[in-house]
């Protein structure tokens, strides 16, 4: 009984120490440890093959769904915001030392169209160089006025609320407006700049 048991456990113990194989394995049948170890390896190899085949299917499906999402994303945008009337408003941030962003509110031609509260994770993404598409709108060609109100913590962790305005001309074709929060080092104050992209 002893030898049988030892053989059984040996097969379980002699697994190799790598990340992939560092987990404790279950013991195998005890008739012949080496024979069982070989058959277990064969089973493991078959299981690995099956996993690989399924994984390849999953890979191909991931590609298919991503392509579908791309097409649907484009379709949705073209349907809801046709290029000739589309205006997109982006928020970006420089280092952010003098301003800790909480929320941004947008008014277009006197009408509030967006009021967005940022999570810490989103603010961090903005500081690291991300740009958030805050709002998409359909606007007629001609002159429009944008008012953006930024709320957050300013220098010395005080509540800070600032507005920025922009009068812009919407021509034919999509228009992108970027609202950038930057640090003005000399004044140790944040600065809010609005830029237009064509």
């Amino acid at each position: 009984m002893t030898n049988k048991l030892i053989s059984l456990l040996l097969a379980a113990i002699f697994t190799f120490a790598t990340a992939a194989l560092a987990e404790p394995a279950a013991p195998m049948d005890a008739a012949s440890a080496m024979a069982d170890a070989v058959s277990a390896e064969a089973a493991e190899s078959a299981s690995r093959q099956e996993f690989r085949s399924l994984d390849q299917d999953v890979q191909s499906l991931k590609k298919e769904v991503l392509d579908l999402n791309r097409d649907l994303f484009l379709l949705e945008e073209e349907l809801l915001f046709p290029a000739n009337s589309q205006v997109a408003f982006f928020i970006s941030m420089d280092v952010g030392e003098y301003f800790d962003l909480d929320s941004v509110s947008l008014k277009i031609d006197g009408k509030e169209v967006a009021n967005y509260l940022y999570t810490a994770r989103e603010t961090d993404a903005l500081i690291r160089g991300g740009v958030h598409r805050l709002h998409m709108a359909n606007l007629k060609t001609g002159d429009h006025e944008l008012i953006a109100i930024f709320s957050g913590k300013g220098p010395h962790v005080r509540d800070y609320r600032r507005g920025a305005t922009l009068s812009f001309d919407k021509g034919i074709g999509a228009k992108y407006v970027e609202l950038e929060i930057t640090d003005r080092v000399k004044k140790q104050q944040p600065e809010f700049v609005i830029r237009e992209w064509e």
Binding site: L66, D67, N69, R70, F73, L74, E77, F90, S92, R121, E122, D124, A125, L126, R128, G129, G130, V131, H132, R133
Partner: peptide, 22 residues
């Protein structure tokens, strides 16, 4: 591109990939 980074830095890879592809 900045928008892609916005999702990338939040580790929201699926929307980030879709935006790069689009």
């Amino acid at each position: 591109y900045g928008e892609v980074l916005f999702y990338f830095y939040q580790e929201d890879y699926f929307p980030a990939i879709v935006r790069v592809l689009a």
